[in-house]
Amino acid sequence: MKLKIFTFSIFLLISASVMAVLSSAQFQGYVAINNVLKYRLFQEDNDFNFGKFIASDDLGRLLGFYSGDGNSSGFQNGNPNATNMAIWSLGFSSLGIWLAHACDPTPFEDKTFQQLDPLVLQSVRNFCQWPSAKSRNKKNLGQLWDLFVNYDAPESEYVAWEKYMLMNELKAKSPEGIIEEAVVTMLLNPHFLLRK
């Protein structure tokens, strides 16, 4: 009986410590974010794979993923660490650079790129004349935010982002540079990445 009580106490103790660790939001994970981007930015039946932008599909496992091998299962690597923050940053930067092909003088010959939702493509192209007023305005920023971040983040996040994007220091960016800047700073946001 004493052994059972001891074992149960140990179980409760461990459960409590595990719960303490779990009491902070984890990343939604690689698959979830891949799906959000896939359905939000592209037409139906597209080939989008975020793994293409993070150097290796395998690295997606570091961004939070469900694993199971018959012995154990669970959500792994979902807590923020220096590595997964660097990989998210790298991935969104690569995605931004890739989207900036919207400003190419000739159509970008890439099957997945051609599967972009036309509205998304146009909203990106709106920045091809940066920093002219035709590109650098609140209407374009709002449209891009609504397509990418949608209702994931509260309005206060948009306000902060809009203020940032309109800072004078960013005027010197090229159109390609500002598109990359916009994508990284929109998506590397806790409201977009974390479970709520």
Binding site: S23, P80, M85
Partner: peptide, 20 residues
């Protein structure tokens, strides 16, 4: 939990330059 997660992102991001 969300706020703690965001703080964890801050801490992790703070370490990223050293790592990268």
């Amino acid at each position: 939990q969300f706020s703690q997660g965001s703080l964890n992102m801050a801490e992790a991001f703070g370490q990223s330059p050293n790592l990268v």
